[in-house]
C-alpha cells in the first residue's frame, strides 16, 4: 500500500491524494482537466487514500504530467501496520502534520506513529 503526495505548484503547500484510483483520471490514464480538488487532492493527510502499489504507480505517472498543478509528486510506501516505512517515518510524519515547533521531545518521541493519519 502507498500514499501519493506532492506540493501544489502555486503555493508549494503539501497535498495528499484522497481520490479513488479512477477518480479524476481518464481511461488513457491521464488526469482529467479540472481543479486539484476535483482530481482528488486535499491538504489534510488524514484523508489520504491508501492505494495498491499498482494503482499508486499509475496515478504517480499520470500526475507527473500535470506539472501546472502539482510539483514533485512521490509515493510513500506503507508497512503492514499502516505506518510509512521506517526510513521515511519521521520525515513523513512532519510532512503530514506540519512543523512540530513547540512540542517537547517526549511528545515527539511518542507521536511518531500518530494513528489517525496512517491507520489502516
Amino acid at each position: 500500500m502507498k500514499l501519493l503526495t506532492a506540493n501544489r505548484l502555486t503555493d508549494g503547500l503539501t497535498l495528499w491524494y484522497a481520490g479513488t484510483p479512477e477518480s479524476g483520471t481518464q481511461e488513457s490514464g491521464k488526469p482529467e482537466s479540472g481543479t486539484l480538488e476535483s482530481g482528488g487532492w486535499v491538504e489534510d493527510a488524514a484523508l489520504a487514500s491508501r492505494l495498491s502499489d499498482d494503482d499508486a504507480e499509475a496515478l504517480l505517472i499520470a500526475w507527473k504530467l500535470r506539472e501546472t498543478d502539482v510539483v514533485a509528486p512521490y509515493l510513500i510506501p506503507l508497512t503492514d501496520t499502516g505506518t510509512p516505512v521506517q526510513r521515511e517515518q519521521v520525515r513523513e510524519f512532519v510532512r503530514a502534520n506540519g512543523p512540530t515547533i513547540g512540542q517537547t521531545a517526549d511528545a515527539i518521541a511518542s507521536a511518531h506513529n500518530r494513528a489517525d493519519i496512517f491507520e489502516n
Binding site: 505548484l9 508549494g12 506539472e67 510539483v71
Partner: peptide
Amino acid sequence: RRLSGEITEDQFKPLRLMNGLYLQLHAY
C-alpha cells in the same frame, strides 16, 4: 511561464534557485 506550463519544473528549478527560491518540505 512556469505557471502557464510553458516551461517544466526541471527547466524552472535552476532558475528559481538562482533567485533564492527553494521548495521545502511544506512550502516554498
